[in-house]
Design a protein around this nucleic acid. Sequence first.
DNA 1: ATAGGAGCTACAGCGACTGTAGGTTCAAGC
DNA 2: GCTTGAACCTACAGTCGCTGTAGCTCCTAT
Lengths: 142, 142
Amino acid sequence: MLTIGALGRRTGTKVQTIRYYEQIGLMSPPERTEGGQRRYDTAAQDRLAFIRHSRELGFSLEAIRELLELSDSPERSCAQVDAVAQRQLKEVEARIARLESLRRELRRMISECRTDRVADCRILEVLRDHTECLADHAPPER
Amino acid sequence: MLTIGALGRRTGTKVQTIRYYEQIGLMSPPERTEGGQRRYDTAAQDRLAFIRHSRELGFSLEAIRELLELSDSPERSCAQVDAVAQRQLKEVEARIARLESLRRELRRMISECRTDRVADCRILEVLRDHTECLADHAPPER
DNA sequence: ATAGGAGCTACAGCGACTGTAGGTTCAAGC
DNA sequence: GCTTGAACCTACAGTCGCTGTAGCTCCTAT
């Protein structure tokens, strides 16, 4: 049986984060010692590792909740799991595309900088003048 | 003189967002009508357009505050502005690299999915098993 | 027996907004 | 001049996914 700290160390998760996952119902409340401290079994460790790995892959907690529910009902079709992963892949690809257009414009801006006085700075001009902007009106990243 | 709604429409900004920018000191408090409604001049419109365009390029509000201060002192060197832009470019590039590794792993996961029952689903297996993960332990995206 | 590291709860804060409630003002149409 | 209703106002709560803090209590090693 692991303490919350040991579990955190094994899964690369902060203690508060584990308690937060319990609070929002992603992790189920574990056993407690007489003194009220949490003790975790290996099932809990597996579940937390699954959550952390999925987070690293960019899945939202809602998507992870969905995946956990699907994996708890092994009769359901794998197609549903596939759909969640596909959705995630689409989102990642969209974010990459968006960031690449930002990178393009930033590079262009920087290359035009005269490193002279601010009064002549092309970067500020470009930022001021929206009409030169190549990016569409998608919502900004982060 | 523009109302807050008209300013929002011209710059693609929600009314609450404009008030929020005022609250955190990015936009200065505008004139008010007798009844207490905000009225904006063209300088305010330019400033807001600058802020929005910079946000679209992924600059944080703190970075934008810095850029606005630099642009208010035209004697300062453009190099400082360049540094802010370079920093932003680095961040964007790091995020792209991270997302590309996520994309790689998601694609691999999906290609291995047998679209059979959940019990055999490779996606869930891969998510469960961290050792197969190619990504490093960088903090997750978003 | 004691020290102190680790645990506990409860709550505030981050960034960058967004939404809501409940009220007031403005401008157009009659 | 009056009415209507869209747009404005303030103040505050909520979003996501944590992270940090205060002020306790518990557990274990010495």
